[in-house]
């Protein structure tokens, strides 16, 4: 269960734990994009969007509340995947490993919340954000190093991949769990994640509030 050609690019010949970790972190992407990003659209389908948007609180926090439940289900899913990986594929977990990994996952989730806020704001205005969520999923599917290391992609695709929070989270988590590195070894990835999180959350909040105002003024909240 080892590949030397894989090791030349990934730094580890253990390709199964490599993919298992990729799949675990990728599950957070899917629930964020479809769960939170489309929650606005779901409220519109159910006819409850008007009531939610007329409530006297910041609507972005309602979305974050929805996202929390999605994150909880993702975490349960991730724990089961991790348990299988530990039992069958030799992934080792210690307290020294799990704490920095949890920290990185929280950073990843924050970035994904920002992305989902942007999606939700677009679905307020343009209604069918489903396609956008799917397209974004394709971007993560191909350009993020879920199944293969980033170095195996052409340069232009690597640059594209470097814009995704999942890329940095995967590099950091794999460095800690597979290469037994410490958190200080991946400080650049953590820093990049923090910057991406900050940008995505700020843009997400701004865009959502702006789109909400615009949609209210245009009177198209309940439109399909």
């Amino acid at each position: 269960m080892q590949s030397q050609s894989f090791a030349q690019i990934a730094g580890t010949p253990e390709f199964i734990p490599f993919i298992a970790l990729g799949a675990i972190l990728n599950s957070y992407v899917l629930t964020s994009l479809y769960g939170m990003g489309e929650s606005i659209r779901r409220e519109a389908y159910r006819g409850t969007l008007d009531y939610i948007l007329s409530s006297p609180c910041n609507k972005a926090f309602i979305l974050i509340g929805k996202a929390l439940s999605e994150s909880l289900s993702s975490t349960m899913f991730a724990i089961s995947q991790l348990a299988i990986s530990m039992l069958f594929f030799g992934i080792e977990i210690t307290l020294g490993i799990i704490m920095p990994v949890i920290f990185i996952i929280i950073l990843l989730i924050l970035g994904l919340y920002g992305m989902a806020l942007i999606l939700a704001s677009l679905s307020l205005r343009y209604k069918q954000a489903h396609d956008l969520a799917h397209s974004l999923e394709y971007v993560f599917y191909v350009f993020a190093p879920v199944r293969y290391p980033l170095g195996s992609l052409p340069l232009w695709a690597q640059i594209f991949g470097r814009l995704l929070p999942l890329t940095y989270a995967l590099i950091a988590v794999r460095s800690i769990m597979l290469l037994k590195g410490r958190l200080s070894f991946v400080y650049l990835e953590v820093l990049a994640l923090l910057i991406i999180d900050g940008v995505l959350i700020l843009v997400g909040f701004y865009l959502f509030n702006w789109m909400e105002e615009k949609t209210k003024k245009s009177g198209t909240i309940s439109h399909y």
Binding site: S5, Q8, I9, A10, F15, Y138, V142, V146, R147, Y148
Partner: peptide, 16 residues
């Protein structure tokens, strides 16, 4: 899109 990651993965794993 569904096929591409598996192709790249296969090529990386085998080294050709």
């Amino acid at each position: 899109i569904m096929l591409l990651p598996f192709l790249i993965y296969g090529l990386v794993l085998i080294g050709g």
